[in-house]
Computed example of a mutant assay.
Amino acid sequence: MEKTNVFGVVLAGGIGSRMGNVEKPKQFMEVGKKPIIIHTIEKFVVQPQFERIIVLSPKAWLNYTKDVIRKYIREKDKIDVIEGGATRNDTIMNAISHIEKQYGLDEETVIVTHDSVRPFVTHRILEENIHYAREMGACDTVIPATDTIVASADHEIISDIPDRSQMYQGQTPQSFKAWKLRQVFEALTEEEKKILTDACKILVLKGEKVHLVQGEVSNIKITYPHDLRVAEAILGGEKTC
C-alpha cells in the first residue's frame, strides 16, 4: 500500500492573554529551561511517521519562532514555520494550503493538529491519532470528565446537568484527513463558522464521525500562571512515554 503522507501541525498562533501581562506569547515562556513550544516540537520531531512538522505562528513572531527552533531543535530542517490565521480553524486551513502547495495534498493526507502549549503529549497519543485519522478520517484526544458538568443557557440558572458518564474533556491532538476537513469547512455557512469552538466541530456539525483517542491527565494546556508551576512539577518527574 502506498505510504500516507502525515504532517504534524503545531498551533502556536495565540498570544496567551489569559497568562496575564507578559512580554511574549505563552508558547515562548520557559519551563524546564526551554520555551514551552520547544518541548512540544521535540515530541513531534522524534515521531518517524511525520513527513514534515508545520509550526504556525503569529505574524509578528515568525522570525522569533524560527530563531528559537534553530537554537534548540537539531532536526530543524524537518520544520516549516508559517503564519497562522485569525482563528484556530483559519490557522489549520493555512497549514493545509501550505502542505498542498509545497508537498501535494490528496484524500489520504493526514494532519495531526496540536496546541503548542501542550508539551506533555505522549508517543502513544501521537501514534493513536495517526492510526485513527487514517482508519476513521478524524479523531479527537479526550479524557473522561471527572467533575459533574453543569450547563447554563443564560449563565445564571442551571439549564441541564448531563450524564457525566457520557462527558469527556477535550485535549489535543485533533487529527484529520486534511482534504475532507477542508471540504467540509468550506461548505459551512458563515453562521455555522461563528459557533465553531474547535476543528472537530467542523465535522460534527455535518454529521461526520470523529473517533475518540484516550488522552492523559498530564497532557495539560499551559494557559494560566498556575499551569507553569504544574508543568515544572511534571517535568521534574517526567518519564519517556
Rank of each mutant, 00 (worst) to 15 (best):
T109D: 01
A138H: 00
H155Y: 14
I222F: 02
V121Q: 02
K193S: 03
H226A: 15
T87D: 09
S116Y: 03
I69N: 00
A86D: 12
S159M: 05
S159A: 12
V10T: 10
M19N: 01
E135G: 04
C241R: 09
I220N: 04
T146Q: 14
A138Q: 01
K180W: 05
A12Y: 10
L181M: 06
A60Y: 04
I130Y: 12
V213E: 02
I82A: 08
M29A: 02
P48A: 07
Q171N: 03
I36V: 14
T148W: 13
E191V: 03
L228P: 04
P48Q: 06
D147W: 11
W61D: 13
M167T: 03
T65W: 05
E30W: 08
E190W: 05
V31A: 11
L62E: 06
R229C: 10
E192P: 00
V213N: 04
G137H: 07
E51R: 14
I234K: 08
T141P: 00
R134C: 12
R229P: 00
G104C: 07
V9K: 04
T113A: 07
E2Y: 11
H155S: 15
D140S: 15
C139M: 02
I99W: 03
I195E: 13
E42A: 04
A86P: 01
I41F: 07
I38D: 10
W61T: 02
E208A: 07
C200A: 15
V110C: 08
E186N: 10
Y168Q: 05
R182H: 10
D147P: 00
G32Y: 04
G237V: 02
I143W: 07
N21L: 13
V112E: 01
L188N: 00
I161N: 03
H131F: 14
V10K: 02
V121T: 11
T40H: 00
E190Q: 11
G20Q: 12
G236D: 07
K194H: 11
E75K: 15
N63Y: 11
I234D: 05
I130W: 04
T146G: 12
I125R: 09
G8C: 08
H39S: 01
R134T: 14
V230D: 05
G170C: 05
P162K: 08
N89F: 08
K43M: 08
V22H: 08
I202S: 04
R74W: 01
V45L: 01
P58Q: 02
V46W: 01
E83K: 15
V117A: 10
V9Q: 07
D115K: 02
S116F: 09
I38A: 02
E42G: 00
H114G: 00
R124M: 09
M136E: 12
